[in-house]
Design a protein around this nucleic acid. Structure first.
Lengths: 337, 337
DNA sequence: CTGAAAGCGCTAACAT
DNA sequence: ATGTTAGCGCTTTCAG
């Protein structure tokens, strides 16, 4: 049908000035009920819709947040995306979504994000090099990293308490009487992977134990499965494995059960990290550390908002999560219902 | 650091006109190597970045596609999102993402999308009422529905060949010697759910069979599990169930195995629809109809692009997908490796 | 409260 | 090839 309807068209039809129309559509602007009425009627009639881009240009507020996510296979991230969408929507923001498969390309992505005048950036499970972080702070645009930390600091970040999570798993497994406890870690190039591993090692130490083995699963199912295979195909195998996230843990369980003919948890206990919905599915029934995704997302968005509104402070928030004991692990000694 | 750097700042530093700067940054505009050089240097020095919003306002091209997705629990949709991102990125477009949990709110979402001047809209698994479709065609903005059809027509749509898919399943299951074949359908309010069901019923008919039972699983795991429970807790239970998508099929398998103590496929064959990656996991090893997601996404984006560039034609594309025979179903009669 | 006027940062004629 | 001049559609002073 028609061409673009502008506020001027509405103004003419309503018999008012263009700025009157603008006022009617601008939150917190004053217009008499009479004008408002006339304008609304005309707008409706014409099918007028304010042009957000034009508004953004004037106000400098695009109401858009750039979200960069590394991968979506791990159920944790689609979930995070849903929560993010909800939290941002509540605050009147929208999501410009970018996928950064390789941690490469992210520089380019940030560049595009900035050119779109996003008001902030949330990266999920993406490592930002410090120069990219600088690129953003130079452009004066807030960034917060979700579920990934950074040694170099300077960037706001929210994660679960991975150090403590790893430690809890160690205590739990030791408490179950396990002696040969292996770890298939998350990507050791990431803070999450590293912290979970460190906490785990520390925790074992507190029980006078040392890891049976530690290998880097890189958050990749194939790699994790390969490690599990290698670890468990000999008689001298671990009796428990802490896997760096649920996604890999599922692959590990499948490998043990269907390839190696082992029983979980009779032969080997498995513990994961995340507590994605699938963990509760009976086929896996995975003991795992719960990442409080909702709290994490809320904290992320709150942090971002406060940066947008009150300027940057590079906070680092870590939210603890409990261990959810399920059927993939042996019961703790003396455990009774 | 600094305030916003505009093309004017660059122009001044480079000692050229503002439009010269614009030309250097506009693809397919002419500028001498000398100016280009000067401008680039100045731009770099200042950290200049063209304002996409301003450009969009002038050109009328935002290079943004609105993507509306209903839910992300079903692994199929995160995957689709990844493919979409890639396909759109290749064509220089970006994704403004909206989540439409309830098929409610979609009107509002479209409204916002339009106000952002998106160049097109892709809805994944979202049913658009015909008035919303009209709302878009009125605004002259192309829409294509991904993985959902619409009776009322008028909207471009790409799905797999659900009718044929359902029929294939019926033939397959009948060919396996099953006689009591039930169907836990996808949401019967959706074209996908409906078509798969219809094709299935038709297919059975061709074998002189009638469905043992048909119930609406609504693409919901809990509901599907409940139906499975009800269907299979009596001696007079189906010996095969065609489930409307993989996501529900997993829940059905879990229910049969862990709650009802039945074996799959010895007691009951299960067939799904989608062929998400999880279907190949040994824990499920699900026989299913493959939705050729990559082809579907490509077709979707191609369709959208041609609408953007050459105006609307409300096509309806259906892409057939093969049955992937796996371990969740009995082998066909006379089947040998 | 309302209208007129001045831009936001940029592209696209239009001359030169 | 380059500079000048209009705007894109809107918000926001600034008078009245």
């Amino acid at each position: 049908m028609v061409e673009k309807i502008t506020s001027l068209d509405v103004a003419r039809l309503a018999g008012v000035s263009q700025s009157a129309v603008s006022r009617v559509f601008t939150l917190g602007a004053s217009a008499s009920d009479a004008t408002r009425e006339k304008v609304m009627r005309a707008a409706e009639q014409l099918g007028y819709r304010p042009n957000t881009l034009a508004r953004a240009m004037i106000t400098g507020k695009s109401r858009v947040i750039g979200v960069v996510v590394a991968y979506l296979e791990n159920q944790f991230y689609p979930m995070a995306l849903e929560y993010l969408d909800r939290a941002l929507k509540e605050r009147g923001y929208h999501i410009l979504l970018f996928m950064a498969k390789n941690d490469e390309g992210i520089g380019q992505i940030v560049e595009e994000l900035l050119s779109y005048q996003v008001e902030g950036i949330i990266t999920a499970s993406v490592a930002m090099s410090s120069d990219i972080a600088k690129q953003c702070s130079d452009a004066n645009i807030p960034v917060v990293m979700f579920n990934r930390g950074q040694e170099t600091g300077g960037v706001a970040q929210v994660t679960s308490d991975n150090l403590q999570g790893g430690r809890i798993v160690a205590h739990f497994l030791a408490g179950c009487g396990h002696k040969k406890i292996a770890h298939i870690s998350g990507w050791q190039g990431s803070s999450t992977g590293l912290d979970r591993m460190r906490g785990f090692v520390d925790g074992l130490k507190e029980h006078g134990l040392k890891p049976f083995a530690i290998e880097d699963g890189q958050y990749n199912q194939e790699i994790a499965a390969g490690i599990a295979r290698k670890l468990c195909c000999t008689p001298d195998r671990p009796d428990a494995i802490f896997v760096g996230n649920d996604h890999m843990a599922f692959a590990v369980m499948d490998t043990l059960r269907f390839e190696l003919g082992l029983s979980v948890p009779q032969d080997v206990s498995i513990v994961g990290y995340d507590d994605v919905p699938m963990s509760t599915w009976p086929a896996y029934d995975l003991t795992t550390i719960r990442q409080p995704i909702n709290k994490m997302v809320t904290a992320t968005v709150d942090l971002l908002m406060s940066h947008i509104e009150r300027g940057a402070t590079s906070e680092r928030i870590q939210i603890p999560g409990p261990l959810k004991m399920r059927g993939s692990s042996r019961k703790p000694k003396g455990f009774t219902l």
